[in-house]
Amino acid sequence: MIDIEALEFHYPQGEFSLSIPHMVVAQGEKVAVIGPSGSGKTTLLNLIAGISKPHQGKVAVADQTVSSLSDAKRRDFRITRIGFVFQDFELLDYLNVLDNILHPYRITHALNLNSEVPQRAIALADELGIGDKLKRFSAELSQGEKQRAAICRALLPQPQLILADEPTGNLDPRNKGRILDLLFENVASSNATLLAVTHDHELLPRFDRVIDFLDFRNEAVA
């Protein structure tokens, strides 16, 4: 599902650079990415999603080299194939929860907002425990509820790949397990791939594989 070769990336300003010689994630695999803060975990997710472009190397998702697509195609690819749970949720404060969940459908023609989609959104929100918050604005939600809304938005288009940046970072222990169960259930039911950045080492046994960013560093230095 994900195939990265000789990836090199650095921001225009600053000393940060990311170097990944090789990385592969198979279809249906659930992979956790760990590493110290500032090691480039979120940058990696952005590169896989096509939000950022590598300076060198190849990033391919589902046999499609994302880094070589035009801006428009990369956007369409991301919105239809990839579900992204952002670390800071990225909810719009002037839309209610339901509209935030449906937002990707309204800003692109790549997704079709038919009458069935809002029904699915409501059902999914119910599963995630925010069914009664759909008319609320994001400012009225707790951090955990915002996170669940962000997960709901990412899962709704039934993507093949889910990139999750600290998906349980703001959840209490009881909800953490419940949300992760739901995330895994959705991934399993659609045979999707999950790549999740996390600092929570208690969760690692639940993943098929763990990628430690320190290994990349060591490999790159070697």
Binding site: I51, R75, F84, E90, L92, P104, I107, T108
Partner: peptide
């Protein structure tokens, strides 16, 4: 907010 909608897949034209 614009950065959010761009991340979600919104084009500059939209």
């Amino acid at each position: 907010e614009l950065s959010t909608i761009f991340k979600l897949g919104c084009s500059r034209m939209t």
